[in-house]
Simulated assay, not measured.
Amino acid sequence: MTRYRLDIAYDGSGFHGWAAQTGLRTVQGELETWLARVLRLAEPPVLVCAGRTDAGVHARGQVAHVDLDLPDPDQVAATLTRRLRRALPEDVVVRRVTVAPDGFDARFAAIWRRYAYRLADGPLDPLQRHTTTAVRAAVEVAALNAAGETLIGLHDFAAFCRAREGATTIRQLQQLRAARLDDGRIEVGVRADAFCHSMVRSLVGALVEVGTGRRDAGWLAGLLGAGSRSAEVPVMPAHGLVLEEVGYPPDDRLAARAVEARARREEEQLR
């Protein structure tokens, strides 16, 4: 078997998220179907992605891998890159397919994921309405950033996550910074080793509460000790969120990183 890396972008508007679901259109389902058609496989292969996105969430830098038992891997990668570009519907693009280096795992070898959430607190360009969320009150970016600094580091983000059985809510938040763009919109960049379900949209929802003056920074900091999902935290709409990039270690560290991450996940599930 040869492992291939796929770099993918998609408009999430027409998908029920990444993960395959019976009877629903998903990114994984669409890609697996077309991989089987292009390669004339009897059964669709299984794709593993770096981060499962929810329904309506977009991606510019999603990464996935697939294992295939086919001759001439370099030719397979070139053929997939060329033919998928022509075959796939217009709301999903496979930018490139490459033979993955030894030890590569799209999910477990990743060391960080970076998302961006875009807001408009003024008139919203109609052409941006599918990728930007409008908020009614003015957002003070400086206040938002000051509050966000309290969240940086290793914390239990249970207050910002939808609970999943056997899944930890402890995450290493590496970066959280907002900036006002030239067109007046606000972009909130968030990077962490991994994210739990609805975490980014909840973090942004809480930060908007502070940035608009409805809550203070002390309220936000106090949420870190909540231990469970907080009903006080609004979850922002999915369409403003984009998975921008996934980071991996050097090739000679890929296998070790994947082993470490998989072992940690198994340990968490046993707790």
Rank of each mutant, 00 (worst) to 15 (best):
F160M: 00
R164F: 07
Y117G: 01
P126G: 03
A163S: 14
D156G: 04
A143L: 11
A158K: 08
D156I: 02
L119Y: 05
V139M: 00
H155C: 04
H130V: 12
Y117F: 06
A106S: 09
R129Y: 08
L154M: 11
A158L: 09
A120Q: 01
A116L: 12
G166M: 05
D102T: 14
A147G: 06
Y117N: 02
V135N: 00
G122A: 12
T133Y: 07
R118S: 09
D156V: 02
P123E: 14
R118E: 11
E165L: 15
D121F: 02
G148H: 03
A159K: 02
L124F: 05
A146P: 04
T168P: 07
H155T: 03
V141L: 02
I170K: 13
A134L: 10
T132E: 05
L144A: 06
A147D: 01
F160P: 00
E140S: 14
L119W: 06
D102W: 14
Q128V: 01
R107A: 09
R107D: 08
A142N: 03
A100M: 01
T133M: 10
T168D: 09
V135L: 01
A163G: 10
R171T: 06
L151W: 00
W112F: 13
A100L: 01
R162C: 13
L151T: 00
E165Y: 13
G122F: 02
R113I: 05
L144E: 04
L144S: 04
C161W: 03
I111G: 08
W112G: 13
T169R: 08
T168A: 12
F108H: 11
I111C: 13
F160H: 00
I152E: 07
N145R: 01
E149W: 06
T169N: 08
A159L: 03
R136C: 00
L154A: 12
R118C: 10
T132Y: 05
L144G: 06
A158C: 11
E149R: 12
R114P: 03
W112C: 11
A167R: 15
A142E: 09
T168V: 08
R107Y: 08
A137S: 15
G153E: 05
T169I: 05
H155M: 04
F104R: 08
G103L: 10
A110P: 01
N145P: 00
F108E: 06
T131K: 12
Y115V: 08
R171Q: 06
P126H: 03
A147K: 00
T168L: 07
C161K: 03
